[in-house]
């Protein structure tokens, strides 16, 4: 079955720096992201994966080209509009988890809702629900330091899911985890996060998790060089 296009990049360029430090990091990148699919973005270090993901998520401005996410030209939005666009549409998962160390797991998960001005009680209820979903229903009052790396990343997944965004972006979500834990996290991620109307983009160079992608886009030196479909999941 065919999936709707969630995001589309057309001829995206991204340069950094001036003079001696000038670098072309993205060179006429074209990419389509489909809802209901987990797209893996792979390639050697320094090829521009993180940069591409940042552009897609609207946290980095492009130099040239179109960034279309759910029909919105993200590259044309003002900073304030971009911020509110991210708040409504995008979930984030980071390599370093970025959980606030002084907040409990439940409070951490509630953050995206609190940002959207959902009342605290309601936000907490939903946060607890999503912690159950990722199998941490018994850890709601734990602080990040009291959790293992895999558990912390599951908290981060719950946080990315709680506001029910239609696009979730993850940069190296398993790089700080050992192989087994990484697989468990990805397994759970596919089960809980993937939905018909949600697109997921995962940047990785961890080939042990390639099998979890529906579509694998390979980058080299600022360009997408190939796109494979992985039929295993279909």
């Amino acid at each position: 079955m065919e999936h709707e296009i969630a995001a589309k990049l057309v001829d995206v360029d991204k340069n950094f720096g001036l003079g001696n430090t000038f670098v072309k990091v993205l060179k006429k990148v074209n990419l389509e992201i489909h809802s209901g699919e987990l797209t893996l973005l792979v390639g050697p270090s320094g090829c521009g994966k993180t940069t591409l993901l940042s552009v897609l998520a609207g946290i980095l401005d492009t130099t040239d080209g179109e960034v279309n996410v759910f029909g919105t030209r993200v590259d044309k939005l003002s900073q304030a509009k971009k911020t509110s666009f991210r708040r409504k549409n995008i979930g984030f998962i980071f390599q370093q988890f970025n959980l606030l160390p002084t907040l409990t797991a439940a409070d951490n998960v509630a953050i995206p809702l609190l940002i959207s001005k959902v009342p605290y009680r309601e936000a907490l209820k939903k946060a607890k629900y999503y912690l159950e979903v990722v199998g941490l229903g018994d850890r709601v009052t734990f602080y990040p330091t009291q959790l293992s790396g895999g558990q912390q990343q599951r908290v981060a997944i719950a946080r990315a899911l709680v506001a029910e965004p239609k696009l979730i972006v993850c940069d190296e979500p398993t790089a700080s985890l050992d192989g087994e834990t990484g697989k468990i996290v990805m397994e759970m991620f596919r089960q809980t996060a993937l939905k018909r109307d949600r697109a997921i983009v995962v940047v990785t160079h961890d080939n042990r998790i390639f099998e979890y992608g529906d579509r694998i886009a390979e980058m080299l030196d600022g360009r997408i060089v190939s796109i494979h479909e992985n039929k295993n999941h279909k």
Binding site: A57, T83, S84, F85, Q96, I111
Partner: peptide, 16 residues
């Protein structure tokens, strides 16, 4: 700063 950055990425405005 890291956490403020994360909050910002997740859609917290400068004003907040």
């Amino acid at each position: 700063e890291r956490y403020f950055g994360a909050l910002k990425a997740m859609g917290t405005g400068n004003f907040t």
